[in-house]
Design a protein around this nucleic acid. Sequence first.
DNA 1: GTAAAATCTTGACATTTATCAAGAGCCACC
DNA 2: GGTGGCTCTTGATAAATGTCAAGATTTTAC
Lengths: 189, 189
Amino acid sequence: MHQVLEQHIRAKLGTDTAGLEEVISYFQPLELKRNDYLLREGELCRSCYFIVNGVIQVFTIDAVGNETTRDFILEEHWLMEINSFLQQVPSKEFFRAAESSQVLCISREHFMDLSARFPQFEKMYRQILELSYANSVYRINSFVSMDALERLRWMMDHQPKLFTRLSSKMIASYLGISPETYTRLKGKL
Amino acid sequence: MHQVLEQHIRAKLGTDTAGLEEVISYFQPLELKRNDYLLREGELCRSCYFIVNGVIQVFTIDAVGNETTRDFILEEHWLMEINSFLQQVPSKEFFRAAESSQVLCISREHFMDLSARFPQFEKMYRQILELSYANSVYRINSFVSMDALERLRWMMDHQPKLFTRLSSKMIASYLGISPETYTRLKGKL
DNA sequence: GTAAAATCTTGACATTTATCAAGAGCCACC
DNA sequence: GGTGGCTCTTGATAAATGTCAAGATTTTAC
């Protein structure tokens, strides 16, 4: 697992990777089965996660029990509940494996320590934030302005991999529609 | 104007503000009248903006001409079209003054240079990203899971200032609903 | 391998929201 | 201080989406 992370970091940072061995040594491997949770609403997000393989569903549950998916995090991507992680306030989100997944996790304490000690690690963190923020902006703009069918087409254009790996129910919850509406939209494509 | 920025940066970074004078010197003041544009769709976002006072509307226009507002940026907040700024690809968003506004702007080149030379400036940039990302996460979660009335209540709880400064039309475009629906929802509060 | 459980689909109907149209109020500009 | 153009509201209607229920299909668990 750690090799995948090393490759990933080298690809992001290029040649200047002093301290990479130490950085990587702080990441603990986790094996998740489908439906295992990494984080639940109300808990503190105490770790930052790197997905080696698998998919993690990031979702909330509202007052009447409906699940809404903010994002699916695929392999070679990073995951945290930013507000809970930074402020150490209770998480509003759940993180759950949508497939059996391998994950590397680093504690908040080690993460902060590495950020302070290795400028390259901080730079990588900044790149993760930039990417996550840019993706969020896309998601807001597409979601707010489009109707359900347009959102489905947007997802097919931008995230086609998800359709082969996730249940219809999960895709519907990502699109913000009921499973029934999703079934009907598929007929209109 | 520059004093406001200086105060803002000191509040964010604390005592370690070596180079602050030089950092601030790269910011150019801009005076905007209502409906002046800072950025239009298709242009490159060549600057990062700090709002000294006023409100900037961040919005997109879809194929049939509907405006959808992603965010309103108030005084003492930062603004950029992250994807266009970082990748130098055409912006998908418009930035337009919703009131007459005072803005400080720094070019991408100076911004990158300061980030590389002053760790504290990079740290502040990272904080801006963290905050922007965290806000986006909230917006996605609230928007995808809530109906229009719930979104209105959410906005009243989290952004009450906006109601006193913006037209109904703009608030409707932030909520992702038509002005008519917004009028009707107000009657249900 | 089979039973139980979950998911997916389809239909009927209810609710939410958009669209179109018209009139009232408000503001900007000359 | 009009006048023309916005914005805001209200009503009527249409379109989109949700909810509930039932049956078909697939997956899971033993």
